[in-house]
Design a protein around this nucleic acid. Structure first.
Lengths: 185, 185
DNA sequence: ATCACCATGTAAGCTGTTACATGATTAA
DNA sequence: TTAATCATGTAACAGCTTACATGGTGAT
């Protein structure tokens, strides 16, 4: 009866809780800004919407749009909102630990020193660039500081994920610098 | 000819570069310590070893052991070592951004304040516990500081991944504290 | 005797990626 | 007219998880 919902399902519900959207809209938002912590291709989104609808968690009506098939605008049902809230309140599982960079660092002893330095420098550059993207996003958000003042709002929730991203990039930068200092003795 | 190797394949090669091992050994090491940044079940490891062997990257001989089937001890071939080193030297892709915690935080505005605080506190506790595990591991490593002094050794490489883990947990703890301070205005 | 550990494999199912398929509207 | 954007779907494949399947040795 209460069909189980995957993380992808909750990602979709989380977006629809903020505003009604087409599958196409959801796919775009799964690229940015939600893509920073959860991504999905449109080929995943459409079947997932059908599953959620058959479970009574979302519903749609048809609006006129630009595609060859009817354009469907989805919104959360009351049951969907309850299901999402219950899931959010449960303790979060850890993200699966699968980091290709760490796999490389574990075998860093196979490289000669200049190669090792180059690998870490490239990583550093990548994190610095991402940090700049996040920081720009945060400046944009802080243009309306009153929306971020209340931690009960959706704007604050989005800001909290951004802050986590900024903190992560900063930690990786610091780690790169720690490693580079040792590699360049 | 040069069959492409997956991340899992490189994880196995990276372990075998350090020492010869059975599939069972590799599976254990994929749980701990390598499991902190790459995990694999034995049902993945055995077929992967067969693939790597058919590609000439690893080879095995049969030793006496305790199982119902012959016990196979695998080691890296010269080609396997070259393949691994080439892969390590290439720039690393980013870990796929799929973090269920951030998915929940994005919808944190659906919870009442005590529920939100409880979620972040549970997360904080989890990261504090993991940090303690890593710190204990590091103390163990630092018992022989001469092994960590040279950044060209496998011991140093393992330490570098540990440092990244410690840094990550610390960043998450700080972020939890930042968020808790705001939720408990 | 029972349990933990050693040891290797296969099969089914779920999740995610890439490719296939179609077609209208709007701006350069 | 050509490309980008809007818009929705299916199919094939790759990777990972969980369950099935077998059986020996050593410690409690």
């Amino acid at each position: 009866m209460t069909a189980s919902t995957s993380s992808l399902g909750y990602a979709v519900l989380g977006l629809l809780a903020r505003s009604a959207a087409t599958g196409y809209d959801l796919t775009r938002r799964m690229h940015r800004p939600v893509g920073w912590f959860w991504t999905a291709a449109h080929s995943q989104v459409y079947p997932e919407l059908a599953r959620l609808e058959s479970g009574g968690l979302v519903e749609h009506d048809v609006v006129e749009g630009a595609g060859p098939r009817p354009t469907k605008r989805y919104r959360l049902t009351r049951a969907g909102r309850v299901r999402l809230r219950d899931w959010v309140a449960e303790p979060a599982e850890r993200a699966p630990d699968r980091d290709p960079l760490m796999l490389k660092v574990y075998s860093l002893w196979l490289l000669d020193r200049p190669q090792a330095v180059a690998l870490v420098e490239a990583t550093r550059t990548d994190h610095a660039a991402r940090l700049e993207v996040y920081a720009a996003q945060e400046r944009e958000m802080q243009a309306r500081p009153e929306a971020l003042a209340d931690p009960g709002t959706r704007e604050f929730a989005a800001w909290a994920t951004l802050r986590a991203g900024i903190s992560f990039e900063q930690h990786r930068l610091d780690w790169c610098d720690w490693l580079l200092a040792r590699l360049r003795d």
